[in-house]
Amino acid sequence: MGIVNISWQQIVMILIACVLLYLAISKGFEPLLLVPIAFGMLLSNLPLSGVMNEAVSNIKLIAPDGINALKEGTSASISTQTPGGLLHYLFQGDALGIFPPLIFLGVGAMTDFAPLISNPKSILLGAAAQFGIFTTFLGALALGFSAQAASSIGIIGGADGPTAIYLATKLAPELLAPIAVAAYSYMALVPIIQPPIMRALTTKEERCIVMTQTKPVSKKAKIIFPIVVTIVVSLLLPTAAPLIGMLMFGNLLKECGATDRLSDTASNALMNIVTIFLGISVGASAQAEIFLSSQTLMIFGLGILAFAIGTAAGVLFAKLMNLVCKQKVNPLIGSAGVSAVPMAARVSQKVAQEECPGNFILMHAMGPNVAGVIGSAVAAGILLSLFG
């Protein structure tokens, strides 16, 4: 029976899984991701469940007469294999870097890059928000983490779960579970973490800045954009090609108008299937002996630091732009550069309307928001090229 083999560490992990399920279901914190992650964590920490067991090969020596051989040289061998657990095999999609790019394919098919194309300056805000990644990378190095582990921890600041998983599997697979849980937890907490930082760094007058309406974007520009971005980014940073390429491929399926069925599959059925497999397998990697350590606490602390610095950097860079640009920018849209699409943009809109009910900055915030998706993938490519 499993109950007689349970350890206190497994009990703690089961409780953590139940708390995450509560937050996801009752509080609505990223339920599409936290429910699979938490349930995978629950399954893998139930004693003797074997869901994450690796396949085991067994070689048995037998004598010609069928009796087990005792002497070498008088026997033949039979090889048998005990299959691994279900989630062990699903986890190979994470370990081999398959699931995160497929998530990017679905994200691309759901993303409208028109706000970014109509206001190219938004890409600067998306880039500024990645400052949290590299600041936290340096902080993790100072705390004794290796360059590979520090890179994987820093990417949490991009608020992009698939990118965090992709980089962790490449550079620090032993830290995948805490990094994934931290990344998705902080994505879910965007409406709680960001507003105090945004208000602390801006004045009421700045939060009430009304931005001019964005100009319309032609269909041709929407089609050309993913092709050009794929070519330029891949030529400059080949390691980012899997993420950027799949993101832009999904977007091309959406915008070209000739592949509606493929776009619908990528943004719905495929996206949902991969999300289930990725979430439950990543959660299952959070086994007690790996997850419950001082390193995990440090990762969660550094993760929230990365997220906060990224939010602050985006807001401060927007304020800097107001010193040199004729058209004023509402600094609140800078916080949307952390990539959590579209939640971060909605938070910018919510804070702006709390100050001025008639101020509508959502579409302006979507520019840096989608730029942040590109920025986090590029940041991951830079770290991977340096330390991979």
Rank of each mutant, 00 (worst) to 15 (best):
P357S: 15
R346M: 14
M343R: 11
V351D: 00
G367N: 03
L332K: 02
I361Y: 00
A345I: 02
K350W: 10
F360E: 14
E355Y: 07
A340L: 05
G367F: 00
L362G: 08
Q327A: 13
A365L: 04
A352G: 08
Q349F: 00
I361H: 03
G367M: 01
N330P: 02
P357F: 07
I361C: 05
V341S: 09
G358K: 11
N359L: 09
K326R: 14
L332M: 10
A352E: 03
P342V: 09
V341M: 13
N359F: 04
A345R: 02
S335T: 08
V341D: 01
G337M: 06
P331M: 10
K350E: 14
H364V: 05
L362N: 05
P342E: 08
A340C: 08
C325Q: 15
R346F: 10
V338W: 00
M363I: 10
V341Q: 04
R346D: 10
Q349S: 13
A344D: 07
C356H: 11
I333F: 03
V347I: 12
A340E: 06
P357G: 15
C356S: 15
V347P: 00
A365C: 02
P331K: 09
Q327D: 14
A352R: 06
F360A: 14
P342I: 05
S339M: 13
V347S: 03
V341E: 00
K350P: 01
G367T: 05
P331R: 09
G367W: 01
S335L: 08
A344S: 15
P331F: 06
V341I: 12
A344P: 01
A336E: 02
K326L: 11
G358M: 08
S335M: 10
E354D: 14
M343Q: 12
E355L: 08
M343S: 11
C325I: 11
C325R: 14
C356E: 14
L332Y: 03
C356L: 15
A345E: 03
C356G: 09
S348H: 02
E355R: 06
M343G: 09
F360T: 14
S348C: 12
G334M: 07
M343W: 01
A365S: 10
S335Q: 10
C356T: 14
V338F: 03
E354R: 08
V351L: 06
E355P: 00
S348A: 15
S339W: 00
P331W: 07
Q353L: 08
N359D: 09
R346N: 13
L332R: 03
A365N: 01
A340R: 02
C325E: 15
Q349W: 03
Q349A: 13
N359S: 11
V338R: 05
A340F: 00
G337S: 10
L362V: 05
M363F: 05
S348R: 04
V341G: 04
Q353D: 08
P368E: 05
M366F: 04
